[in-house]
Nucleic acid binder design. Structure first.
Lengths: 261, 261
DNA sequence: TGCTTGAGCTCGCGA
DNA sequence: TCGCGAGGTCAAGCA
């Protein structure tokens, strides 16, 4: 840890922050501050105790004691300004960016703690359960959707867009499959458009199946009104299928059994 | 600040975290850790230096040195577990929640800093520039959209949903106004449905206007294909209008001139 | 509690 | 650089 200073006065804090901000260090500043933001919108946050974090990629976070999300932030800061407002004995930290043109101004009245840290984290987050993982699981194991299903093509292009999975069922009917983690009315309309396109192309009735890990009553009704079908996939099955692929491909999964709970 | 301990051993850290977690304190833990998540999806994050924050509402954040967003998180934690894994000399922090059923497990190999803090922040974020602010600005000053416009009704109910603003233009034509901060194709279809409804109701041609602070070429073309119109509003005008309302209502705006930059 | 919708959405991918 | 879609979206409002 490069620096750890408790209760610095504003000019000491200024020197530390000035030295390390915009230089690939992680700063944490605990203190009493107010925050103004102007850009795509405009916000004002009166004084309160907050945790301010400046990350090594120049992301800025202002967290209050409550809530998951920060009170104010700046995902990418282009230019910093660290000044002491002598009149009010305040430390003023400004984070600007262009595109969009935005400014976050933080005024510290008191600072409890400043830490500066060169953090090393080379690990990448490995995550499974995205929509594309469902696609691949279906391609690898079509019975996740239905017995006797054969995948013809993935990402098949039509004038209405790309069909997630194009398949045939055991009676040789064409099947259009749309995969969504969070299906809504729009998903239904999208699937409808794909089915219409394929019916035009093949001149016959085509089945349309929405595959998702969850579904609401209303969207289901909307779907069935259009003679489209719903198949629920368990996310666990998708992940299990995916891990099987991983193991067969690499010999060892990133999500091996040691991770089971 | 209740506690500030540098480089504690795992059992010291365990005692501190155990004492304050789930008790409306804000904890910050800097250290070398790995994180597993399982729930709606499944993720694995190998060892790296991270900042872990537990907020007073029991939100959990795991931040790496890069990126605006946390590597792992839990917006609301129902139950905590703080254990020492003697075999590996690791501190294991588990955060569970139900609905959805999810678990974040953090394993600390080294801990650089633990702070515990009872943070006080009674200030609410005052923010302007939401979609509803655009509605209200138009109601207060219809000329933001068009000269001679008169607002008839806000949030007018139709079978297709609520119309943001229903108005008449200077030639006494009815005008349906749909407001969106980030308009897309869907917005156009929505506006189309409203216009269709109103045309049924009033048996005549009705103008439909999409009001937004920005627009893309494709959505604009899609809009004009349907004989619908687009009016760009400057977010600054909306905010200025809103501040005028504030001042007239309260005598003093939360976003007064002292905040202008 | 579930459902719907907006967000200073953010982020990544592709053109 | 812009546009488009997904997100462990989150969070607020309403039924």
């Amino acid at each position: 840890m490069e620096e750890l200073v408790e209760n610095p006065d504003v000019s000491t804090a200024r020197d530390i922050i000035e030295e390390y901000v915009a230089r690939k260090y992680t700063l944490q500043i605990n203190g009493l501050c107010s925050v103004n933001y102007q850009g795509r919108a405009k916000s004002k946050l009166d004084r309160g105790e907050r945790i301010v974090i400046v990350k090594q990629c120049s992301a800025l976070l202002v967290h209050g004691p409550e809530n998951y999300q920060p009170k104010n932030w700046q995902p990418e800061v282009d230019s910093w300004s660290v000044e002491v407002d002598d009149e009010n004995d305040e430390l003023v930290l400004e984070a600007r960016r262009s595109n969009p043109e935005e400014l976050v101004e933080i005024r510290f009245e008191e600072i409890d703690l400043v830490t500066v840290n060169k953090m090393v984290d080379k690990s990448e987050l490995k995550i499974r359960g995205h929509e594309v993982d469902i696609h691949e699981s279906i391609e690898d194991d079509p019975e996740l959707v239905e017995e006797g299903l054969t995948v013809i093509e993935r990402e098949r292009e039509t004038p209405a867009g790309f069909i997630d999975v194009f398949a045939r069922d055991e009676d040789d009917n064409y099947v259009v499959i749309e995969v969504k983690r969070n299906p809504d009315y729009n998903t239904v309309l999208q699937l409808q458009r794909y089915v219409d396109e394929i019916e035009d192309e093949f001149r016959g009735d085509i089945r349309g199946i929405l595959v998702a890990p969850k579904m609401t009553e209303k969207v289901l009704a909307y779907l069935e009104e259009r003679d489209l079908e719903f198949v629920e996939v368990e996310m666990e099955d998708v992940i299990a299928s995916y891990e099987a692929i991983d193991r067969s491909q690499k010999g060892l999964s990133d999500f091996g059994p040691e991770y089971e709970t």
